[in-house]
């Protein structure tokens, strides 16, 4: 941290911010779409499409990926706290 601005950290915030902050909602939206189309619901009086189990499965895969990413993210931020209090050092945390 020699300069006025830690450009390296800023770039990391930007890149991880886009991946997590925009990528995860996008993945979630793909899941919502797959689920809606996969369920083959009836629109008004018309049959919109048959059930498509593969799409439904893909939807749950999307939701699961989002959930795992969030859990990993929270664990990562809390890793020092968890390690400090439980002795369980995860995701590269180190005993101080």
């Amino acid at each position: 941290m020699n300069g006025w601005l830690d450009v390296g950290a800023l770039l990391k915030v930007l890149v991880f911010g886009i991946v997590a902050g925009a990528g995860l909602p996008a993945l979630f939206a793909v899941g919502v779409r797959s689920q809606a189309v996969g369920a083959g619901t009836i629109d008004g009086q018309h049959l919109a499409g048959d059930r498509r189990p593969l799409l439904t499965a893909a939807a749950y895969l999307c939701f699961a990926l989002v959930a795992v990413a969030i859990a990993a993210g929270v664990l990562f931020v809390a890793r020092d706290f968890i390690g400090h209090h439980t002795g369980w050092y995860v995701l590269g945390a180190e005993p101080s």
């Binding site: 886009i18 925009a22 809606a36 189309v37």
Partner: peptide
């Protein structure tokens, strides 16, 4: 600025992914 950029990208891709679907079919999920 960064938060706005990320949210713009996120919102755009969310709407893009669910384009053509009726809102009532996606509302619960969102």
């Amino acid at each position: 600025v960064i938060a706005g950029l990320v949210a713009t990208l996120g919102t755009y891709s969310v709407y893009r992914s669910t384009r053509g679907l009726e809102e009532r079919r996606t509302e619960r999920g969102f």
